[in-house]
Amino acid sequence: MGAERSGALIILLLGIGYLWEAFAMQVVSIGDPLGPKAFPIFLGALMSLLGISLLIKPEKGANARLFGKTSLGAIILAGILAVYGFGIEWIGYPIATVIFLLVATRILGERSWIIGMLLSMGLSIGVFALFTLVLDIRLPLGPIGEILK
């Protein structure tokens, strides 16, 4: 099965899953003729039909490959990004950002650790200054904040 059909299958599954949830909704509604279920049921049904239609008769001319080597870098970057998202809160903005920049520049082809380190430090401080000094937005400091106390 090609990527095109796999996509259609995912759409069909999404439609069915959504429809399932929509029907399972517990509803107490008063004075609301349409209710909270009607619109989701319509959407779920529409999505399922589109999925079936694309499964039976895929669009011509598309032959993308999703899970080749080409996607590996993108998936790794996304993984690091997700960790960074939580890192801002866990270990504070400064450490999380420096580590993220260091790793991300490396993945994208920066060869020198020194340049990477300088870049990461400089940028973290720059962005921090922009947010705290100009926009007055506080960012979590994590353990660095504790040490400074």
């Binding site: 705290t132 000094l133 100009v134 007055d136 506080r138 400091l141 904040g145 400074l148 106390k149």
Partner: peptide, 10 residues
């Protein structure tokens, strides 16, 4: 802004 960040740091 500066004061607030200093206040935050110290």
């Amino acid at each position: 802004g500066l004061l607030m960040s200093i206040g935050l740091l110290l």
